[in-house]
Amino acid sequence: MAKREKKPVHKVVMTEGKRQIIQQLLQEYDIETAEDIHDALKDLLGGTIKEMMEAEMDDYRNGYKEKTVNSSYGSMRIDVPQDRKSTFEPKVLKKRQKDISDIDQKIISMYAKGMTTRQISATLMDIYGFEASEGFISDVTDKILHPILYIDAIHYSVRDNGIIRKMAAYVILGISCEGKKDVLTIEVGNNESAKYWLAVLNSLKNRGVKDILIISADGLTGIREAIQTAFPKTEYQRCIVHRVRNTLKYVSDKDRKAFANDLKTIYNAPNEEQGRANRDRITEKWSEKYPNAMKRWERDWDVITPIFKFSANVRIVIYTTNAIESLNATYRKLNRQRSVFPSAQALLKALYPATFEATKKWSMTIRNWGQVYGELSIMYEDRLPE
Rank of each mutant, 00 (worst) to 15 (best):
M1D: 01
V12S: 04
R19W: 01
I21V: 08
D30C: 08
T33F: 08
D36V: 07
D39Q: 13
T48S: 10
M53K: 14
D58A: 12
I78N: 04
I78L: 15
S86A: 12
T87N: 10
E89F: 05
K91D: 02
K94S: 12
I107K: 04
I107D: 02
Q119G: 07
M125F: 05
D126L: 12
I127H: 02
F136H: 05
K143E: 12
Y150R: 07
I163H: 12
A169T: 10
G174M: 10
E178Y: 03
L184M: 13
L184N: 03
E187L: 01
V188W: 11
K195P: 00
A199E: 11
K210V: 03
I214M: 06
I215D: 00
E225G: 11
A226N: 09
Q228V: 10
Y236C: 06
I240H: 10
V241D: 08
R245W: 02
R245T: 05
L248S: 06
K254W: 06
L263G: 04
K264T: 10
I266A: 04
N268E: 13
P270V: 11
E272V: 15
G275C: 08
G275W: 09
R279D: 04
K289V: 09
Y290V: 07
K295L: 15
R296G: 00
D300W: 12
D300G: 02
D302M: 13
V303N: 03
F310D: 00
R315W: 10
V317N: 11
R332T: 07
K333F: 02
P342M: 09
L348C: 08
A358H: 11
I366L: 12
P385K: 15
